[in-house]
Design a protein around this nucleic acid. Structure first.
Ligand SMILES: [Mn+2]
Ligand SMILES: [Mn+2]
Ligand SMILES: [Mn+2]
Ligand SMILES: [Mn+2]
Lengths: 227, 227
DNA sequence: AAAAATTTTTAGACTAATCTAAATTTATTA
DNA sequence: TAATAAATTTAGATTAGTCTAAAAATTTTT
């Protein structure tokens, strides 16, 4: 079993949009927008993927991954995230630089390569953005994390992930001194624009916009230690 | 500047055949045989590569790499060999297992990635098969090595490379206990079939076929220490 | 329940990379 | 040097992946 880079990119996109839509069928236009491709091209490709039993496709109703499609998409995500860890941990790239390269590396074939890379990296469970890495059997641990914008002030939280992977956002966090594992304490939410006053361990207080707080995922500090 | 995987594979093949032919033009059929592709397809592609100024092409006369083509081919070889070192040194693959994977990895784009990988590996000068690795500027050191079949018995040599990269040959060397860096002493050449009696440091004597000796590259032990 | 708007599919075309078979050019041999 | 053989190119097809424009289906609005 092996698929083209293009086919694999479709599988990943369908997986991503499925997650967002709570497993409801993914519509042609959504896929077209996500992949920056004409809707007509998507229609073509999903017919081919359906023939290969990677997705179920009902005309005008959208597509869903089959078990096989799920498995393959998960495998691609495993590869992508392991390579991201490699680029950061071993080659010293920053968390806003690794995505593009991993986007290529995820298509390199070789199960043995993936498993040895996993071992070399010490079987990491999360990637540089806090996203879980599926293991050899396609299983992964989801964390009970929430956007910082949703939590109650007056308690310490640990930064465990980001929802926005854009370079600008990640560099903005760097600028603020916020990284995965940072201890952050929300002080108050300002009703006017929903911005949030927060402070990092031993640091001065500062303000985060609603948008910035929405995309920052945190866990309560005591819960985190059990993970 | 960036080229398709296919174009890059043509460049590498032309480079390889040019080396063999002493820089005389590479003929369509040679390229077709090397790449296991129909001659007509080669004609098509070399016209495209000539348009992109990567090769000079005269109808019916064969092709030669331009300076730009040389540069790019050398860059691909640099990437291929660095990834081979990574797979062997860091992931623990054997020298007969790395080529296929490197064949894919050499097409991954990112100059910074290549240079960081190089640094991570400690700027290796030779790959797991003893082939030289071009540096960031495309320069590399060729060693004064010769096939074991050509050297005079009665002196100790160091194994520095192989000419045959096939799995069967490399595994055969493993079986004999011959690796890069092995000290090997040719005892005599047998006139009947040009086979060679040799011995490894402290080991018993054994016989190598002419073919096996032709593909094993060695340097005299004292010369090697200066490299 | 029509009409209008939106979404999706179909139709037809294009490029890259390949193939086979036929035509052409170059090299070898008689 | 003419005939023959070998190498190379051209011609015409095919497949994957993409596009735009038009047609068809579905959904929303009136
Ligand atoms: Mn990524
Ligand atoms: Mn990531
Ligand atoms: Mn190789
Ligand atoms: Mn090699």
């Amino acid at each position: 079993m092996s698929f083209s880079t293009t086919e694999e990119n479709y599988l990943k996109a369908i997986f991503k949009l499925s997650e967002k839509s709570g497993d409801r069928p993914v519509l042609t236009n959504h896929l077209a927008a996500e992949m920056q491709i004409a809707a007509a091209s998507v229609t073509d490709m999903i017919r081919r993927l359906a023939e290969k039993q990677l997705i179920e496709y009902e005309k005008y109703k959208g597509v869903q991954l089959t078990a096989e499609g799920q498995r393959w998409a998960t495998y691609l995500i495993r590869k992508h995230r392991l390579w991201e860890v490699f680029l950061l941990e071993k080659l010293g790239f920053a968390w806003d630089e690794v995505h593009e390269m991993a986007e290529q590396l995820e298509h390199i074939q070789g199960d043995e390569l993936v498993n040895r890379l996993d071992r070399f990296l010490g079987f990491p469970r999360y990637d540089p953005h806090g996203d879980p890495i599926p293991d050899e059997h396609g299983r992964w641990e989801a964390r009970r994390q929430s956007p910082l914008s949703d939590v109650m002030p007056g308690q310490v939280f640990i930064v465990t992930g980001v929802q926005d992977h854009s370079t600008t956002y990640l560099q903005y966090l760097d600028h603020l001194g916020i990284a995965l594992g940072s201890r952050i304490e929300p002080l108050e939410r300002l009703p006017y624009d929903h911005s949030m006053r927060v402070k990092l361990a031993d640091g001065p207080a500062f303000t985060l916009s609603e948008k910035a707080a929405l995309n920052l995922l945190v866990m309560s500090a005591d819960e985190q230690t059990t993970q």
